[in-house]
Every structure is written in structure tokens, then in C-alpha cells.
Simulated assay, not measured.
Amino acid sequence: MRVVDLSHPVETGMQVFPGDPSVSCRVATTVEQDGFEVTELHLGTHSGTHMDAPSHIVAGGATIDELSLGDFVGPCRVVHVPDPGARDVIGWGDVREQLADLRPGDAVLFRTDWSRHFGTAHYLAHPALHAEIAQHLLTAGVRVMGVDTLNPDHTPHGEHDSGELPFHERFLGSGGVILENLTNLGDVTWPDPVLCALPLKLRGLDGSPVRAVALQL
């Protein structure tokens, strides 16, 4: 079995969505002084490679612990969008051919290779997916999608940015979930990969970090 890690490491000071809680990892006890080591973590639910539950933007939507784990282990499709520019909008016409013959329950992961900018200011200027893609995925029975960027929508920048989230609203609003900050999608080179991306069982919360991997079984 081959395993490709699709997750960024969680570490102190890592890049987060603007305004989200910062990430810190602080040693609370040590083997030398206390006989055991424990680390105190401070982070938001959307830190690093993570999953958005519907309740992230939908009042009364499903929380992360209410979602079915069976949805997060199964076949996936990696869609390659080569060399998009900063703040480009990727439309349905750009990906239609790679999304032929989707099966209900497939996960779809969009590879832009923007993850190479993770940790830099340029990462915030990532391309976005048009909301029409969300509708086509939902119509095909897709309930799990992911991106190797900070956001399938544009991340707000500047005081005149509207901050609208049309892809989130369409996809999460219909009960889907979104994986963000994926990486290493270019290493998934075999047909019919299997995605495993399990969130923590955080009761009543809107999202969770995940350890996402692609498997060749």
C-alpha cells in the first residue's frame, strides 16, 4: 500500500486564515522535570489542513461530530488545474473534462500546486473556484471536496473586498464538507486513489484539523 501525506505540519506560528487564532505549541511538562511530556496546543478549528463542517457558515448546519465518517474514506478524483494566476477564478469549463463520470460518493480534490506558497504572503492571493463548480459536484452526488489553497473562494484582501463566500455557501449550504490547505497532490500519480481525511470528534464545533492522506490500495 502506498500512502501520500496531503497535510501540512501543525507548528507554532504557522500561517492561518487572516484573523483566525494563531497556532502555538508550548511544552507543559517534561520527562526530565515531571516524568512525562505533555504539550499545550492553542489553535483554531480551521488551522492547517482542515475540514469545514456545514455549521462553519450555515446557522443550524451540521457540526463536525455529526458528520458520517464513512464519507471521509473512499475513492477520490484529483483534478489538475496547471499554473493558475494569482486570484484567478477557475470555471466549470476549465475542469469539466476531468470530472466526467463522477460517481456519487466520490471526493474531488483540486490540485493547483498553490500549496508551494504556503507560509508566504503570496499564499493569500490564491486562485478560487467558481460556485458553478460546487453545483455540478453536488448534482453528481459529491459531498466531499478539497483544495490545495487556503480557500475555494477568494481570501479577502484590502478594505474594499466584499468577503463573500459563494462556493462555501453553495457547497456547505447543501450539506457538503470542504477540505482546505491540502498539499502534495502532485504526488498522487496513480489511478483511483482512496482519500482518508478524518476530523477530530469535536462536539458541536464548526470544523477540525485533519490528517489527510491518499492511499493506493
Rank of each mutant, 00 (worst) to 15 (best):
A121R: 03
A140E: 09
V144Q: 01
R26M: 01
E180D: 06
P193Y: 01
V213L: 11
E180F: 00
A131C: 03
H136I: 02
L202Y: 06
G204A: 13
V58D: 07
G19N: 05
N181L: 06
V58P: 09
Q33M: 13
N151Y: 02
A197H: 04
E97F: 08
R143K: 12
A86G: 06
P75T: 05
Q135P: 06
H80N: 11
D206Y: 13
S208F: 07
W114I: 13
G204N: 11
G163H: 03
L198E: 12
N184W: 02
S115K: 07
E97S: 10
D65N: 10
V147Q: 13
T12F: 01
V89R: 08
M14V: 00
D65Y: 05
E169C: 02
I133G: 02
G85V: 10
A121I: 12
M14Y: 05
V210R: 14
L185M: 07
R143P: 05
H130M: 02
C196W: 12
V144L: 03
P199N: 07
G146H: 10
M145R: 00
G44V: 14
G105I: 00
V177I: 03
S174G: 04
G207Q: 02
L202S: 07
G146D: 14
S47I: 11
D148L: 00
H168F: 03
D161A: 15
T39Y: 07
L43M: 15
L165D: 07
Y123Q: 10
V27R: 15
D101R: 14
G105T: 10
L172H: 01
D52N: 10
Q98M: 09
A53D: 06
L6V: 00
V108N: 06
S22V: 07
E164C: 09
F72V: 03
M1L: 14
L205I: 08
A100G: 11
S7L: 02
D106R: 08
T189K: 13
S22F: 00
Q33R: 15
D187G: 11
V10T: 11
H122E: 14
F118K: 00
V10Q: 04
D88N: 11
V38M: 13
D101M: 01
E169P: 00
D192R: 10
F118T: 06
Q98D: 00
F72W: 01
I90R: 11
V95C: 13
P75I: 06
T29D: 02
I133W: 05
P199L: 10
F17N: 03
I64R: 08
S24F: 04
V16M: 02
V10R: 10
A53I: 05
G105Y: 05
L138Q: 00
A53F: 04
E132W: 02
A100T: 14
G85Y: 06
G141Q: 06
F110Q: 08
P9R: 12
V213C: 01
P199T: 05
E11M: 06
S47K: 01
G19A: 04
T155A: 14
